[in-house]
Design a protein around this nucleic acid. Structure first.
Lengths: 338, 338
DNA sequence: GATGGTGGTGGGAACGTTCCCATTCGCAGG
DNA sequence: CCTGCGAATGGGAACGTTCCCACCACCATC
């Protein structure tokens, strides 16, 4: 009882008593088919349980009907950051109506980068979504060279030449710091993100601008960059406390780093928010469960995922149509840490 | 300056002064090629920047070199549960050495299920990883019917017929409850997972067995199932407190539900762990940041991801080789909630 | 009644591989 | 000197589609 081989378009054509081409036309919804022919073909398809071979189709159309979501990140992050899950959800939502499949590629080291390069050069996807880009990331340049439709979540620098989408990091950070100022805080430090990423720089810039707008002097020794991890947030907090024992507020560029800061503050006997107020960024699940719950800047991560996907689909449909740059709004969610 | 079309195997053959087949042999590492021919081909490949067209290859080999990770889950979960991220990381790790690509498919509703069904029937992947299976999930049966290599993370029931991997849910739950008993607690309730999932049932069974082993009477009104969400954990806790105002311990089948329970307990003025001790399951990032930090059952989620992938690759290589069933160990991480 | 457009149709070629088979060459063995 | 064999090679066919083009029948138009 060997499994009979899958029916092809020829089998269907024979069964329906029409030519190969007519079957193809029915499959692709061409209007140039008589009603009888269409009915016969559809009946044959149903009887045979025919499913088109998309590989064969790809070969001739040179479309793969799939896109890649590339996450060039040391493995530590995908775990700790709800960010990626939310992006994935947004992407998947945007793809739901289409026939397009999502490939997920984690790039952790040089070897995986080379492998991805070959993969992209072979055009095994129609387009690429790139998430969490670093300033000197080789991938965006490569994609530009290959001429593969690409959209970034984030950007290499404010002068980004590729299509990209990001949230209003500067505005969000400003709102956070303004909120701390309104609460009467005067010694406001910041745990910045990695400075080789635009997110890191932009949120830091927001901190600076808010202070400047309020007529405060900007003391650069109140800045301590970290790597978006909890442990990084902890040691940044430690360094800040050493330099400025009298600080009374911290703006952390991510919730996870803020959580690390909270732990460190507790270790030093500082009460939050009484002695030190803390604001995070992301408004992730972590923010709701820290002790005390974190005031945080909400960014619409899922919407970022949806938007980059929509832009990419448009770019695939009409390549080189236009450079798109979308900025999504943030909002401040106030909880008990301020 | 129109982009010159990609070189094919024919171009390479001409350039190297050999036949198509010889190039193919070099590409596939056949030993039946002379050293000179091989060198000439490799030179030509390098000069032309030739990259094999994997779609054409797929057409003839009928292998796609990709597998799908299917997450049949209402969208609320992928976000809140670090579980999925960890699985993905494990899968990606196991795939790192291979040429195999990972497709991520979220199945949220009937329409997406139909779409996936067609996709799988078209054999657009070589195998499928299925995560978070419900008892009456149609997908496992479909996959069995299609004869597509499949491995489950979790199982439909203890009698699962497909290859599957899961952690020792019963043992983990037993350890949690035993720990509560050792702490001198006597009114131990449980917020169970969904009872249409084996994880839910197994963890509940562990709760029952631990009580029985200790010679306690098992009071079924101390059981309240929920849906693995925070809000679900909250209302389950509320129901339990109503029925048993005197309970002094809760075992929740997930950290997220435990976090909901903590919030509800706080609302009722109960102190944790003084009045009520709480244990979670997963040892996710959430457990470390709740107030107080959660005692939790750790399960090796990343390893689950790695293992299901390894099994799947083996199954693809040698179909029907054997039914595999792997159980991975859990361990208890004690923090301040007990 | 020739002309020409138009809706419907089907066969051939092409997409870029791999696999099967036939062919060539050199060399050992009788 | 013929035979046989294995290593190296290349051409044809096949994989299952889509697209181009040719064709036919029909009807409207001049």
């Amino acid at each position: 009882m060997g499994a009979t081989r899958r029916p092809t378009i020829k089998t269907v054509a024979a069964r329906a008593g029409v030519g190969r081409t007519t079957v193809s036309r029915v499959l692709n919804g061409s209007p140039l088919v008589s009603d009888e022919a269409r009915a016969a073909v559809q009946a044959a398809i149903a009887e045979l349980g025919y499913v088109p071979n998309s590989v064969a189709r790809s070969l001739v159309t040179s479309r793969t009907d799939s896109i890649a979501l590339v996450v060039p990140e040391s493995e530590s992050r995908l775990g700790s950051e709800p960010y990626f899950s939310a992006v994935i959800r947004g992407v998947s939502n945007a793809l739901a109506g289409t026939q397009i499949q999502l490939l997920l590629t984690l790039v952790r080291d040089r070897r995986e980068l080379d492998q991805l390069t070959r993969f992209l050069a072979a055009r095994r996807v129609d387009g690429v979504l790139l998430v969490s880009v670093h300033r000197d990331d080789p991938l965006p340049g490569l994609l530009e060279e290959l001429g593969l439709p690409t959209v970034l979540a984030g950007r290499r620098s404010p002068a980004e030449s590729l299509n990209h989408v990001h949230s209003d990091n500067v505005g969000g950070a400003r709102a956070a710091v303004r909120h701390l100022l309104e609460r009467g805080r005067s010694g406001i430090a910041t745990i910045a993100g990695p400075l080789d990423m635009d997110v890191g720089n932009s949120r830091l810039r927001g901190w600076r601008e808010a202070l400047r707008d309020a007529g405060r002097k900007v003391d650069e020794s109140l800045v301590e960059p970290a790597d978006f991890t909890e442990e990084g947030g902890r040691s940044a907090m430690r360094a800040l406390l050493e330099r400025h024992p009298g600080l009374d507020a911290v703006f952390a560029a991510s919730d996870v780093m803020a959580a690390g800061a909270l732990a460190e503050l507790r270790g030093h006997g500082r009460r939050v928010p009484d002695d030190v107020a803390v604001v995070g960024f992301d408004d992730s699940i972590v923010a709701r469960h820290t002790d005390p719950p974190l005031t945080s800047v909400r960014q619409p991560v899922e919407e970022i995922g949806r938007t980059i996907t929509e832009l990419l689909l448009r770019e695939i449909e009409a390549p080189g149509s236009a450079r798109h740059h979308v900025v999504l709004p943030t909002s401040l969610v106030v909880r008990d840490s301020t």
